[in-house]
């Protein structure tokens, strides 16, 4: 199983090194090497190398969380592993959603002159952020591990199902009542040459970073789970000793 291989210390270390190198290269190329494209406000084009990769990782992370929730709910593949995976992926996803919002907001400030525009993508992302904060909150509700896992899996599915509904609702809302909205993706047609390579590198290194973070979060969840179990066993052993005495 892929998970087990990634989880070995050595592979994870290699992955982390690659992700770190990729990030350094992306930042170096993005901030200092690539040209300042015409048609953009001063230097803003450089945000293009991190904003789309951040948004991409966000979708991958939520997709992974949803897939794991489904696998957990499916009786044949029900295993605590998928619960930990869903939680780990969603938490990393929330971090990346926050960063997507911040970088998008800065983009908006330099390009449109406002920190926030009621753009469909932006609004959907903001709602997604709140939705998954709620999901993480419900994961923290204490209870029997199996119950918590099942509860979280359903909450994860309910949250994910809302995403397309929200997106279409917000798109109609904007398209029916205002002129064409500013599309964050319009910049893409200007991407070429060294810029295209930098953007590609950005996608790869942010994805590697996501996998590394998620693997570590997953290991933390497994360790915490074991800690809880062993604490329980120690308490039980104590009670037994008392009873026998």
């Amino acid at each position: 199983m892929m998970l087990r291989r990634i989880n070995s210390d050595g592979a994870l270390r290699v992955l982390g090194t690659l992700a770190l190198l990729g990030m350094i290269a992306t930042v170096w190329l993005g901030l200092f090497v690539t040209p300042n494209a015409v048609g953009y406000a001063d230097g803003t084009v450089r945000l293009l190398y991190i904003h789309p990769p951040l948004a991409w990782v966000m979708f991958v992370a939520y997709g992974m969380a949803t897939l794991s929730s489904l696998l957990y709910l499916w009786p044949r593949t029900r295993h605590p592993r998928f619960d930990h995976l869903a939680g780990a992926s969603a938490e990393v996803g929330v971090v990346f959603t926050g960063l997507t919002l911040v970088s998008g907001s800065i983009w908006g400030r330099t390009t449109w002159g406002v920190w926030w525009a009621w753009d469909p993508l932006l609004t959907t992302t903001a709602l997604l952020f709140v939705l998954y904060l709620g999901y993480l909150a419900i994961r923290n509700v204490p209870g029997d591990p199996e119950t918590v896992a099942r509860r979280s899996a359903v909450a994860g599915l309910v949250a994910f199902l809302d995403v397309p509904v929200v997106f279409f609702a917000v798109s109609w809302w904007r398209s029916l009542h205002q002129g064409p909205t500013v599309n964050l993706a319009t910049g893409k047609s200007y991407v070429h040459g060294s810029m295209a390579w930098t953007l590609m590198l950005g996608f790869v290194s942010f994805t590697l970073t996501y996998i590394w973070l998620m693997a570590h979060r997953y290991r933390l969840a497994v360790l915490r789970d074991r800690e809880g179990d062993e604490g329980l066993e120690a308490a039980l052993a104590e009670r037994w000793a008392e009873a026998v005495r």
């Binding site: 709140v130 939705l131 709620g134 419900i138 809302w173």
Partner: peptide, 17 residues
């Protein structure tokens, strides 16, 4: 406090529609 946090964002499309 948990219910409003979970319920209100999901209900956003209803509010809109």
């Amino acid at each position: 406090t948990l219910l409003p946090l979970l319920f209100l964002p999901v209900a956003a499309p209803v509010l809109l529609g």
